[in-house]
Write a protein that binds this DNA or RNA. Structure first.
Lengths: 176, 176
DNA sequence: GTCATGCCGCTACGTTATAACATGGCCCAA
DNA sequence: TTGGGCCATGTTATAACGTAGCGGCATGAC
């Protein structure tokens, strides 16, 4: 029990769910697209397009960048994955009935994880400001960088933490 | 009076202001950095790094990408410019005393303009959600794509508009 | 059957960003 | 006045991210 892969079981369930969703919409979740979605869902962190490409190739596929991007476009159109602009990377959508829904992301610079949140208060605040300006919003990107609860604790809690000896080492420096 | 350049006068004033600000902080707004800032402020729309590079070269400078990126890094560190993640482009900061201040951006897909807003309600909504999750935010990216007031009017107002005959032509398609 | 459509393979290229190393100026102290 | 530290910039090369466009092949409609 040195480390338990964080719930390997739901993966297949989520794929099945995605299949059903696409079927209901008349969209075709092909093997390729399903594989890409699987890799994204299996990743504990956001994945870049080229990382996906590499992983697909490791699994024996022989693809070029456009193929992966097309699959990603499809998955985003179905609301099954989100793109994180700050990271140029992709995450699975956490929503059960995904489509347009507005989402916000909290990106931990220490552990690299991205938490999706669907907070109406934020969406409403944005919508209200837009309305006040006569702006007709189509999509909102909300991405907050910082330290997640776990990393904030182990980082500031010097003198009692059992986890990391000197706080969260930056995940990918990612200067930007 | 066929077209009036939108306020050419404040440009120099803003540069002087930026200079003063940097001086106060002990930061050096060199000629290069000042030139880059000038180009960004002079642009009615967000500018990409390579567009800046081209314009600098047109003005006789001979630079490479890293030089521009370093200048941009400096200007961002001083809060004088912001980066728009959706566009991979940069805009001048509208704040008078710029630093960390949280900002939100409304990006018009029709005319390409970016409006900076500094709405405490949005910032607070984000902060509240973060706090609820134990997340320690460092920076928030809020970028809303849609139609600005002007373009929304001329686009939907078919039958009476005097401006554009068939609505706002998309600025840069920018698939993403 | 054959036709349209949608998906995918592939080549090639465009765009955005950074690593790594070299140079040059400025200030200060020895 | 020389040498060293520091910062900004120059230079080369390459990494990382993304797309245009064409052709072939399967599937389902008629």
């Amino acid at each position: 029990m040195t480390r338990q892969p964080p719930a390997p079981e739901p993966l297949e369930a989520r794929l099945v769910q995605a299949e059903a969703l696409c079927a209901r919409r008349g969209a075709r979740l092909t093997k390729l697209r399903r594989d890409v979605l699987g890799l994204i869902l299996a990743s504990p962190e956001p994945v870049g397009a080229y990382a996906l490409l590499d992983r697909m190739r490791e699994q024996g596929a022989s693809l070029q960048p456009p193929t992966v991007y097309r699959a990603l476009d499809f998955l985003m159109a179905q609301g099954l994955v989100h793109r994180l602009e700050r990271l140029n990377a992709f995450v699975g959508c956490h929503d059960d009935a995904p489509h347009d829904h507005a989402a916000q992301f909290f990106l931990c610079t220490a552990c690299g994880k991205a938490e999706e949140v669907d907070d109406p208060a934020i969406a409403e605040a944005v919508a209200a400001t837009a309305a006040r300006r006569g702006f007709a919003p189509l999509r909102a990107t909300v991405e907050v960088e910082g330290l997640c609860a776990g990393c904030a604790l182990s980082g500031s809690d010097r003198g009692g933490s059992s986890t990391s000896p000197d706080g969260p080492g930056p995940h990918r420096p990612h200067s930007h």
